[in-house]
């Protein structure tokens, strides 16, 4: 009996890195990555080339003469209609739209979600159903009524109006997100805080908020990327002076006068995409953790 333990396999099972399954899995992953990264590569190299080099037509070849001229032009002097100050105006508009919209929508939605999850007030279920129903109404249906509403309030074509629209449209999904997260927190914690004499806001700020960083990061990423990338609301509810970056990008890329400056267009596109990209890189880990921590749980 005792000798039996000495013969045969022992310890960790040896692994074959180059097994057929591994080659297949990593091969597929590599292929898919290349497929996804290729367009980005083309954009980056094109944006760093001068126009003569682009006319040669080798879109995959790296730039011979690296130039940042297209980037500078895209940022500060590309023309859209009458304005020739590049994307910078749109960038600052987008910043002025995104920051207040994100803060406002998250602030309101988190309180909504908290109230729905923990303070089961009368009619809470009905309220929630209506809110969720709102998430399924196509945006297009509401565009025109909102134009009228904003006009009546004197907010049409203003940044404030657009902020309001973004806040309202973010409400259903964000409220759902927060409600589900707060529901997943232990209910006894909430009860203990009530016995300890904390009120609605006391519990929200001192018990719930400190435990909810991951879900706030998730909400922030959703909102920043969603609002930054928005085109439809931007083009409908603003005017050239207040166009967000995406609308301006479209106008630069689609301008009909003169030759198509591919390098400037690519640079402008990359500039516009930079903000969501940075947000993902900075908070990607927290994002995943937030999703895992009940954001997608019933």
């Amino acid at each position: 009996m005792a000798d039996l333990a000495l013969s045969g396999p022992a310890g960790p099972r040896p692994k074959n890195r180059f097994s057929r399954a591994n080659i297949f899995i990593y091969g597929t992953l590599l292929l898919v990555s290349v497929y996804y990264l290729l367009p980005l590569y083309v954009m980056v190299v094109t944006s760093l080339k001068g126009m003569p080099e682009i006319r040669l037509g080798n879109i995959f070849s790296p730039p011979v003469d690296i130039t940042f001229e297209p980037w500078i032009k895209a940022w500060s002097s590309a023309c859209t209609g009458l304005n020739c100050d590049g994307l910078s105006r749109g960038f600052w508009n987008s910043v002025r739209i995104t920051i207040p919209s994100v803060i406002l929508s998250i602030a309101v939605a988190s309180v909504n979600g908290y109230a729905l999850a923990n303070w089961r007030f009368r009619g809470a279920d009905l309220f929630f159903t209506i809110l969720i129903f709102g998430a399924f109404i196509p945006y297009q249906v509401m565009i025109w009524p909102i134009v009228i509403l904003l006009r009546e309030m004197g907010l049409y074509t203003t940044l404030t109006g657009l902020v309001l629209v973004h806040t309202i449209f973010g409400m259903p999904i964000l409220t759902l997100l927060f409600r589900n997260y707060f529901t997943s927190l232990p209910e006894e914690l909430f009860k203990a805080a009530r016995v300890d004499g904390a009120g609605f806001w006391g519990i929200y700020f001192r018990i719930m908020l400190p435990m909810s960083l991951p879900i706030f990061v998730v909400a922030m990423i959703l909102q920043v990327t969603g609002i930054w990338n928005d085109f439809l609301f931007g083009v409908v509810y603003t005017k050239p002076d207040t166009y967000p970056m995406t609308v301006q990008l479209n106008n630069i890329v689609n301008s009909v006068q003169g030759v198509k400056e591919y390098n400037v267009n690519m640079a402008a596109t990359l500039l516009t995409g930079l903000v969501p990209l940075i947000i993902y890189f900075v908070s990607g880990k927290l994002f995943v953790r937030g999703i895992a921590a009940g954001a997608v749980k019933g």
Binding site: E188, L189, K191, A192, M211
Partner: peptide, 13 residues
């Protein structure tokens, strides 16, 4: 009243 819960319910932060 004071209450003690099964899951302790201590404020984690």
């Amino acid at each position: 009243i004071g209450m003690v819960f099964q899951s302790y319910a201590l404020y984690p932060q």
